[in-house]
Design a protein around this nucleic acid. Structure first.
Lengths: 133, 133
DNA sequence: TTCGTTGCAAACATTTTGCAGTTTC
DNA sequence: GAAACTGCAAAATGTTTGCAACGAA
C-alpha cells in the first residue's frame, strides 16, 4: 500500500503535456506528441502514468469518445462539450450549477456524492460549417 | 441509404429488456438476461441492435463504466449517479438544469448543442455501508 | 423471392500486465 | 542496493464485421 513516488522524466512530460493543452487528448495522442522528444517512450508507460495521475486526482477523465478514453489536465470541475461528429472536446465556461444539487442527490438516492460532471453534445463550429455548406 | 425495418423477435426482446429495467445494463448483461429465453441469441446481435436503437434515438448511452458501455432505455434527458466502487448506475430525479445552459454554450463556444447530460459520482448506499463498517 | 436479420467466429482496437533491464534515491 | 519505473511484447477485454443461413414481408 505504501509506495514512495520517484521522479521520472517521462512522467513529468506526460503531465506537462496534459497541463499545456486544452485538447483533452487520449493516451495514444499523448504518446504521439511525446514520442519525438522521447524516442524510447512506450504506450504502456503513458497508460500507467495516466492511471497514476487519476488516482492522485491530478487529472480527470472526460469519458470515452469514439472508443478512446480522453483526459483533462484540469482537475477542477468544469463542463465539456463533445462534438458528435469529430469527437473534439471543448471546455465550457459556465458556472458549476451541479454543485448545488449534490446534497439533494445524496438525500434522494441515499448515496454519497464526491463529484459531478456536465457534458453538452452536438456539432462543433467546424463540423457545423462542413455540414451546411 | 433507405432501408425498411423488419420485425424481429430478438430485437423486440432487447428493447423490452432495456425498457423494463432501471439497471442501465451493458451489452453483455442484456445478453445474459435474454440467453435463457433465447438460447440461440448471440452477443453480436445485442451489439447490432443497441447501435440500431441509439441511431433511432430510442435509447441513450450513459457512458463507459469500468470498460463497458452502459445503456438506458429511457431516452428522455435525465441525470445519473454512478458508483465509483461497484459501477452501479442510478437514475437521479432532479430538474433538467442544464437545458437552460444550452444556448449560452452555443454562443460562447460557437457550436450547436443537441443534447446534454448531468452525471454525479460517488459511493452508492451499499458500498458506503460496506466501507464504513 | 427479396433483402433485412442473425449466429458464428475471426478480426479489430484499446487497455492491461509480466518480466527483465534501467533509473532514482 | 532497494525499489520505483520503464520498454517490450503478449495477453486480456470489449466491440465490430464478413459470410452463409435464416426469417419476415
Amino acid at each position: 500500500m505504501n509506495t514512495t513516488q520517484r521522479y521520472s522524466r517521462k512522467r513529468e512530460a506526460i503531465l506537462l503535456a496534459l497541463r499545456g493543452t486544452t485538447e483533452h487528448p487520449s493516451a495514444e495522442t499523448i504518446y504521439t506528441w511525446l514520442k519525438p522528444a522521447h524516442p524510447d517512450l512506450s504506450l504502456g508507460t503513458v497508460y500507467r502514468n495516466l492511471s497514476f495521475f487519476m488516482e492522485n486526482g491530478d487529472i480527470i477523465s472526460v469519458g470515452t469518445v469514439d472508443g478512446q478514453e480522453r483526459y483533462d489536465g484540469n482537475a477542477a470541475p468544469h463542463a465539456h462539450f463533445i462534438c458528435k461528429n469529430c469527437g473534439r472536446v471543448i471546455d465550457v465556461d459556465i458556472p458549476d450549477i451541479l454543485e448545488a444539487r449534490d446534497k439533494s442527490v445524496e438525500d434522494s438516492a441515499g448515496v454519497s456524492v464526491t463529484g459531478h460532471a456536465a457534458t453538452f453534445t452536438g456539432l462543433c463550429a467546424d463540423c457545423r460549417q462542413r455540414e451546411t455548406q
